[in-house]
Amino acid sequence: MDTILNTYSTVKESEVSVWFKAAEVGKFAKNGGVCVKYKDKQIAVFNFQRRNKWYACQNLSPEKNENVLSRGMIGDENGIPKVACPLHKKTFSLETGENLNGDLNAIATYPVKIVDNFVYIGFSE
């Protein structure tokens, strides 16, 4: 099980070597999430329109290792943008990946950029 979890680690903008062209902006629900497939990875991407921001993180909830985070609801806690897992409502910061309401390990986050109406996610391999 842990092996799936290990396929994800945070990528900082400065570490990006591949900008993966995911899909056009119109396919991403406003203020909601969708899942992007990149090689063997599943990445949850959120179009946080209220803040005019985009966030990406692993789709895998680290609590039970299910690929569901993109189906979770987004929002904020004390100003920190977050996503709530649809299974047991564990919440994670979309900025740092930190588990805000428990002691789970942080999830991996990825940089997102929009170019010519397309959504790109940054990977280091």
Binding site: A29, G32, R50, M73, I74, G75, D76, E77
Partner: peptide, 28 residues
């Protein structure tokens, strides 16, 4: 703020009770 997993469904439920919108209305 931006809302959260507690207030969003609650507001959705109020809209539904007032206007009987289905859950498809504002799915996020």
């Amino acid at each position: 703020g931006d809302g959260c997993e507690i207030c969003k469904p609650l507001v959705a439920s109020i809209f539904a009770s007032l206007y009987n919108d289905t859950a498809n209305k504002e799915e996020v």
